[in-house]
Design a protein around this nucleic acid. Structure first.
Lengths: 231, 231
DNA sequence: ACCTGAACACCGTTCAAGT
DNA sequence: ACCTGAACACCGTTCAAGT
């Protein structure tokens, strides 16, 4: 081992970032886990607009093209991030609390996680679960919870999809401006709508939370009626 | 009036697109309505990937920068398209059919329109209604329908938002691959989920339609219970 | 006021060259 | 196998110049 670090490991005289020589490094500097955590850090600091392949490469101190040895596209990076986030969704109540309480805990947690990551929603919606192990783990726990609660097997997927659809849509609401329904100068031509907006203004909850609570309770009630007696 | 068309109106000798001279044309060649319909045509022919400012300009036979005399950004173009699509949503049953039937007709129509335009969903979710007259018109009709059905005024917006959230989330499902829930090689480590997926396979409806129907019925039942007697 | 044309500051992705 | 560096084919947007 040389006593003096190689030239590319010393800080550049001008204080710029140190450069790696071209060619295969002695050990790989990138892997999927590192790319995932760098992407998460970038998103939390700069939002999804800041998540570019160039920015990701810079944070990892590699050339942008190096990323393509580990992921096949930016969509692939989003998939890695999405699967990580799924592991943050709280499914712990299934098996530990009654079905309706478990669904409520899960749904609020799920919505809150993705309210901060709405740009991933179009990705999730089309993503085959095969490629996302954490996502699959979540579905397994939730499916078991529904079966144990007495749901007929052939309706479980539909019920979960319906809940998820509501959750994803509701995640967008959280990001909407508080005054999104202000009819502005059109107020007098839309009296019923304007009255409804004004009538809702007195509530303690944020509009997005009130709507989520209302819809979730309705879905839990309605879907719950599908259950037969649990054995 | 000259008997011979001006040079820029004649086909170019090489058969290329005819060019306009620089400078203000004698009458404006662009307006918002024209931009909107060109955008819609582009989307229907090439999808949202094909909707670029350059492609839009080309279809309208102007330079891309000319668009910015009429819209301030691409987001603005999406907003124009979105507002047009809202006018396609069927609200005709409100006032003509019982509340639950009207909601069902409206919701299916709404979902079907945006299932083909999912890239607009993130735009809609954050868009103040002030800027979108057709959208506002839809909300007016729906609000009146809810009020006349006996909904308490302060819950109407929440109820509509809950339904819309479900509708937007469900629109994504329509675009998902039919085998999105195939657990693939992970099937044996997720027995409950795998069984649920297999149990759902026999249904006549597409998975997205079965989930939408189930969730919509649950929401209509649950929300409907908020009504007091209509007068 | 409303066009053109050139320019700007980016994107994601590919690929030859290097070790 | 896994990096660098250059290049490609785009993006959306700005702005001076022209009429």
């Amino acid at each position: 081992m040389p006593a003096v670090p190689a030239a590319h490991q010393r800080p550049a005289p001008d204080g710029g970032v140190r450069r790696r020589r071209a060619g295969r490094p002695s050990s790989a500097v990138l892997d999927k886990a590192g790319i995932t955590s760098a992407a998460l850090e970038l998103v939390s600091r700069k939002g999804y607009d800041g998540l570019t392949m160039a920015a990701l490469a810079k944070l990892l101190e590699v050339a942008p093209s190096a990323l393509y040895n580990h992921v096949s596209s930016k969509q692939d990076v989003l998939l890695l991030v999405e699967d990580h986030l799924m592991s943050l969704v709280d499914v712990s109540s299934f098996g530990a609390a009654p079905w309706d309480d478990a669904v409520r805990t899960w749904a609020w947690s799920y919505r809150n996680v993705f309210a901060e990551h709405t740009p991933l929603i179009p990705v999730i919606a089309v993503l085959p679960v095969t490629d996302a192990p954490q996502t699959l783990a979540m579905y397994e726990t939730v499916s078991k919870g529904f079966l144990d609660a007495g749901f007929p097997q052939e309706r479980i997927i539909s019920a979960i999809v319906a809940l998820e659809s509501f959750i994803f849509g509701s995640a967008y609401d959280v990001t909407a401006p508080e005054d999104i329904f202000d009819p502005g100068t059109m107020a007098e031509s839309t009296p019923y709508f304007t009255a409804a907006v004004r009538g809702a203004a007195g509530t303690a909850l944020r509009a997005a939370d009130a709507a989520f609570m209302l819809g979730l309770d309705a879905l839990i009630d309605g879907l719950g009626s599908l259950r037969r007696e649990a054995d």
